[in-house]
Structures are given as C-alpha cells and as structure tokens.
C-alpha cells in the first residue's frame, strides 16, 4: 500500500527574472515503514520538494504549476490551508535542520509538545503532560519528567533535535519528513540521532523521507534513494543498487568525490564546474555541461526518468550504453 505518491510535481517561484521552476516533474512514492532518502546538492530542489508536499511554501511567490501529491487517498495540492493543517501532525510532520530556530525560545519544551498534541486531540491537561513526558522519554531525553519545564536554551543542540523529533511524532504521524536533520550536529551526535530515527521507525512503523546532501547519511538509513540535480530527479533505486551500480554519471561522480575513511587515494575524482543557479540552468540535460560523457544530444533535449532495470530508473540518454562494460 502506497503511503505517499508524488506525481509529476512542478513547483515554480516568481523571481525578479520571471518565473523559475524550482523542481520539475518530480515523481516518487513511499510505502509504510519505508525510509526514502532524497540526496542532492544546493539548488537540487530537495527541500522545495519536501516543503511542497507539506504545503509550507508561501504562495505567492511559490506556485504548484503541475502535478499531484497523493496522501491517504487525497491530493494534498488541492486542499485548503485549513484542511492542510489537519493533515500536518497526525498525517505528515516534519523536522528541520536548525533545532535552534525551530523551537520557540519563550515557551518550555513541554508546553510546545503539549500544544502540538492539543491542536489535534482534546485531552485533559494531566493526560497531555503524561503524553509529552512519554514522548520525551521515547526520544531519549534522560529524566524526561524533570526536563519538561526546561526552555530550549537550557538544552544542547542534540537534545533540541530530540525535542523536535518528539514534537513531530507527538501525534503519531504516518509520514515523517526530515530535512537535513543532522547537518547542524556534530558527528557523534549525528550518529545518535540517526539511530534514534531508525529505532522510532521500527517502533511506530511510519514512513520517513530523509533529505540530505550526505551520501553517508543515505548509506546509514535509506531503503530507497532518489538523487536530484538542478530541480529534477536523475536516478532512483534501492540503496544497495545506488551504491553498487549507479547508472547516472552524476550519481557516480557524487559517490566517487567523497574521500574514503579507510583507503588512500592520491587524488579525488572531482566533478568539474559549478552547480547551476535555478535561473541559469542549461537547456537539455542539466548535468551536461559538467558531464564527461556528454554528447551533443544531451545539450538539446531533457532526458526523462526511465526504468532501466527492475526498481531502478535513471534520466540519462547514455545510461544503458555506459552501464554495459
């Protein structure tokens, strides 16, 4: 059963230079209990994809130009803001990169968690409090009952991210979107938070979308992976396949340019050139100007996502040819 299905989603932004598509024809789906990793660099559109699904982009300047977001039998792009509010929380919830600014500094963390629950369920105060303590306990805050009345500034960055996760899970969402959840954290804390997300997935069975620029985070957590570049999905496959047999030259480049923790390499394999700004994307394949395998055709037409192997699709004219040895 599909938990979330996104079809041909195109989100445009009004800018000083006219309308620019932040993401184009993005399609993907997610099963219950599955973790989908969306990986991409700056300007890839990975965060815009998440915010469009959540209905959190300010409109205008943003506009959903085409496509559907199907969740629980409804197209979320057609819902009013009020209807969308009922979906956020018990349906889909989200955690962000910056746990410092995502919490309100003037309310205690307990108040913020209880408020989230109270927005969707009518419960007596004592019950709200009990639920908030249980949630803090679940996300690994020690002596949760005592910390409930603490304020965000009294907690460390890692603890604040745990509180954010507690808030996001307070209404038992079916889908959790985590946008760069560990980017602002130190590596030992990152490992703790990733473990926590996996544990909670096992316990509650919700689907998770993890958005990251870090292939390591993908390797640690994802079941399926979707690679984005300059607003388009360029490859999608199960996680082991992406790492073992990447089909798109960009995915291959992304894997090769990360230095190894165990092997010596004389030189890194860098991808030449610069990421295109959304308003200055090249015609044709967005990656063509940086691609070592580009042909003249790549500069004129946009390659579409094509299923090349079972459960493995890529958007590259030469993928088949380059994959064969």
């Amino acid at each position: 059963m599909k938990l979330l299905e996104v079809r041909d989603l195109t989100t445009a932004f009004m800018t000083g230079r006219g309308e620019v598509n932040a993401i184009e024809e993005v399609s993907f789906s997610l099963e219950e209990g599955q973790i989908l990793g969306i990986v991409g660099e700056s300007g890839s559109g990975k965060s815009v994809t998440a915010l469009t699904v959540m209905g959190l982009l300010p409109r205008p300047p943003a506009r959903i130009a085409a496509g559907q977001v199907l969740f629980g039998g409804r197209d979320l792009t057609k819902l009013s803001e009020r209807e969308m509010q009922a979906v956020r929380g018990p349906g889909i919830s989200m955690i962000f990169q910056e746990p410092m600014t995502s919490l309100n500094p003037v309310f205690s963390i307990g108040d913020q968690i209880m408020e989230t629950i109270a927005a969707h369920e009518r419960l007596p105060q004592a019950e709200l409090r009990r639920r908030a303590i249980a949630m803090l306990d679940k996300v690994g805050i020690p002596s949760a009952a005592r910390r409930l009345d603490d304020y965000p500034h009294q907690m460390s960055g890692g603890q604040r991210q745990r509180v954010m996760i507690a808030m996001a899970l307070a209404c038992n969402p079916k889908l959790l979107i985590a946008d760069e959840p560990t980017t602002a954290l130190d590596v030992t804390i990152q490992a703790q938070i990733l473990d926590l997300l996996m544990d909670l997935r096992d316990e509650f069975g919700m689907g998770i979308v993890i958005i990251t620029h870090n292939m390591g985070v993908i390797a640690e957590t994802a079941d399926r992976v979707m690679v984005m570049y300059a607003g388009r999905v360029i490859e999608e496959a199960p996680v082991a396949t992406i790492f073992d047999r990447p089909l798109h030259p960009y995915t291959r480049g992304l894997l090769e340019c990360v230095p190894s923790l165990t092997e010596d390499r004389a030189r890194l394999v860098a991808i030449p050139g610069t990421l295109p700004e959304p308003a200055r994307r090249p015609p044709g394949c967005r990656f063509a100007p940086r691609c070592l395998h580009a042909e003249p055709a790549c500069g004129t037409a946009i390659p579409l996502l094509e299923t090349l192997e079972p459960a493995h699709s890529a958007a590259c004219f030469r993928a088949r040819e380059l994959a064969s040895p």
Partner: peptide, 10 residues
C-alpha cells in the same frame, strides 16, 4: 589541470 573552475559560471 583537469578541474579548473568552469569559466561559464561567471
């Protein structure tokens, strides 16, 4: 050098 910055980026 193979990895000079893409001059087109300017």
């Amino acid at each position: 050098m193979s990895d000079v910055a893409d001059a087109e980026g300017i």
